[in-house]
Design a protein around this nucleic acid. Structure first.
Lengths: 221, 221
DNA sequence: CGAATAGTGTCTGTGAGACAGTATTCT
DNA sequence: AGAATACTGTCTCACAGACACTATTCG
């Protein structure tokens, strides 16, 4: 009974999220091999134990090699498994979500990439619809008490842009003054010397994240 | 380059949590095979694609077959992977946490099971210390806004017992009247006809969860 | 000037902690 | 009666939303 020898397929899939026109978009890529060749799906690939020190490393490698992307925030979502999800047989896919600014994706459009606003990010092959919806659920919950939405923005951003990022992820409008108050008290962002005038009537102060990585708050934003 | 054929080991590990003497305990089992034979570790085993429809099913099967346990709540934590975590080579383990009442574990002590209070649940083999600490982190966070701690209790429980479960998971005392108020408003539990007098001076109303599964609150408890 | 966005000050409602006080059972 | 736990009522403070108000730039 060498059941240990029957080893399932292990893959990674990355839900790449970005912000475009104040809406969250999912980045998908046209598949060049079967199954589902020619269809758009999540960016994903096999885990290669010889070169990937972990599934997180595999996700970063796949993202880089297949799509030329480096997420500003890459976190594990959960693992999806079973016989039904892939026609090649029983498989397990460790799903990640990756956040990055719109510009980073726009530079790589030549790689068969497409950005789908959330309401059009359905009908994806495999169980990718489920993965996307779980990723959004997780991000929405996490957004309420962390600096997660900031990773959808370029390094330098205004408080308004940050609020719009939170609003896009949370799916609801936030109170402007309360938001400024809280973001200020939480000390998660720090002002930059420069100013931005572009695209707004009155120039606004630019900020950046105080710490390079995501921080969680004790209160809700 | 048939790199797809090199498939890593896929296992499940379950962090079984229960409540004993008002403290959270982790259930560990003595290993009967190498590596680390004779040492206590998390309950775990290989995923068997032929019989497990998913990793969740594998976790439930391993829990049942190896420990005779059925968790009242079994949820996926995350996947741990890499070369270092298991001497047999590159492996991925999908970790779950399972909650159940003390009595359920006590019935199965013959199966080389042991309950460790949190402060003594260290020095476990593999990366099981990390898995335990991540599981607790997740449960603590989830406890604050869900009915999770109720799954550490028998079906029927008093409000005091429920509060103690929350306190044990959260690691801090909760205000009694505020707790009753909130639990009441959240309508997560419903009263049972019976009363319990055992172990307390004044008999207390017994309750059960209104819904069989975990519910999340809009506010914090 | 008016439009538009940036940014501030203040009021108010709600919810959670604190805590006193009442209720019920046991020894 | 007194101990012990169950349960209730009320005060207060902090925080989030609402919203009015000022500030700065552009056309």
């Amino acid at each position: 009974m060498n059941q240990e020898l029957i080893r399932p397929i292990l893959t990674v899939d990355i839900v790449v999220l970005t912000l475009h026109e104040q809406r969250v978009h999912v980045v998908v890529q046209k598949r060049d091999k079967p199954p589902h060749a020619g269809h758009f799906a999540l960016i994903g690939g096999y885990v290669r134990p010889e070169e990937d020190v972990s599934t997180a490393a595999a996700a970063a490698r796949v993202l880089r090699d297949k799509a030329g992307l480096t997420a500003r925030l890459l976190e594990q979502l959960m693992t999806f498994s079973g016989t039904e999800r892939d026609p090649r047989g029983w498989s397990a896919s460790v799903a990640y979500y990756g956040l990055l600014p719109y510009q980073d994706v726009a530079q790589q459009v030549r790689r068969n990439l497409k950005m789908l606003p959330l309401d059009r990010a359905t009908g994806l092959p495999f169980d990718h619809d489920t993965i996307v919806s779980k990723a959004l659920e997780r991000c929405r919950r996490r957004a309420a008490y962390s600096s997660l939405p900031a990773f959808l923005l370029p390094i330098a951003f205004t408080q308004s842009a940050l609020r719009h990022a939170y609003e896009a992820v949370l799916g609801r409008a936030l109170n402007d003054s309360a938001f400024r108050r809280k973001i200020d008290e939480l000390r998660v962002i720090e002002p930059l010397a420069g100013n931005v005038s572009k695209a707004t009537a009155r120039p606004a102060q630019l900020y950046r994240l105080g710490r390079g990585h995501i921080v969680e708050f004790d209160r809700t934003v």
